[in-house]
Design a protein around this nucleic acid. Structure first.
Lengths: 169, 169
DNA sequence: CTCCCTGCAAAGAATTTGCATCTTC
DNA sequence: GAAGATGCAAATTCTTTGCAGGGAG
């Protein structure tokens, strides 16, 4: 009733989620859904509807892309997957129960990406969600900045060519 | 609405950004672009290409939606707007130089979006960036969860009768 | 005068919906 | 047996592209 199932498995085992599935009001546990669920459990990383359909195709029991599309929202509501936010125009998802969750620190100059974990931030996020009456189920955090190397390189350039640049593309 | 005279780059004044615009390699400052820029300066909150076109229409100097679409990426590269990430399939933008920066709390059930500010999180982000030698220039944070209403509604529905709920889009 | 910009129409890509048929409970 | 689920095709929605005329530098 309230949040979720007491069981919060960290593995990708299908059996852990059959239950959830049937808890979605009025839905039936069809073979298509088992297949989809199975594919999700085996999928590492983010995926789009089509990626999932493709991986299902490889499993040998093809499910229509339309059916995948129809089930993704259901699975999201069931807490099986979560929609992740990639600045793009496609719906990306990922398993909702991945054990580790790291965030990204991205250098806007050279594109370097550093992964990090910072429990304290997670705690505050819970706090914010709570303040607004939300039950937090996930988050997406990206920090943009300039890495050490690029800061140095930049400083050198400015010494050579002072004041000439306001900002560039 | 506000004719405040604070000449800070944090305000929505067009003049602050003309320069930037012309710095995009090879672009010209046409009247269409001025109009678009102007509309962006007056736009509070996030907008999609069409919202902007609509607001421009209201300004009286309509610009084709196609042109808006063609200019948004340019403006993003110029640092005038930034693409915000709302878990949806449309491209949302917001002015990049808004003084206040709020983050989003998104209900995965009904799609409701709540904006919030939480300075403490910002501080921690600075800390994380610092630990990795980064100079923080921006961030993007979205919290996904279930809002109070949906938590209640969900509980009720599961108890009584499953019915379709309003989802946006 | 040369490119770049714009608008229109049309193309694309991602996702949703109508409908007849097949399944699960 | 009935409420759901599925697949196909068609419809939508958002965004991009081709092309010819118009404008900025």
């Amino acid at each position: 009733m309230d949040s979720g199932k007491a069981k919060k498995p960290e593995s990708g085992k299908l059996s852990d989620f059959d239950g959830n599935f049937s808890e979605i009001s009025g839905t039936r546990l069809t073979s298509c859904r088992r297949t989809i669920l199975n594919a999700i459990c085996n999928y590492e990383g983010h995926f789009r509807a089509e990626d999932l359909a493709e991986s299902i195709r490889r499993l040998g029991r093809p499910v229509s892309l339309v059916t995948v599309y129809r089930n993704l929202p259901l699975l999201e509501r069931a807490g099986v997957i979560r929609r992740t936010c990639v600045t793009d125009n496609v719906a990306w998802y990922e398993r909702a129960w991945k054990a580790e969750h790291h965030d990204h620190l991205i250098c806007t100059k050279c594109g370097k990406v550093v992964e990090f974990e910072y429990p304290a931030i997670d705690v505050l996020q819970e706090a914010v969600a709570g303040e607004h009456g939300f039950l937090l189920t996930g988050h997406h955090l990206e920090l943009m900045g300039v890495c050490g190397q690029c800061q140095n390189r930049n400083a050198e350039e400015e010494r050579i060519e002072p004041e000439k640049e306001g900002r560039r593309k």
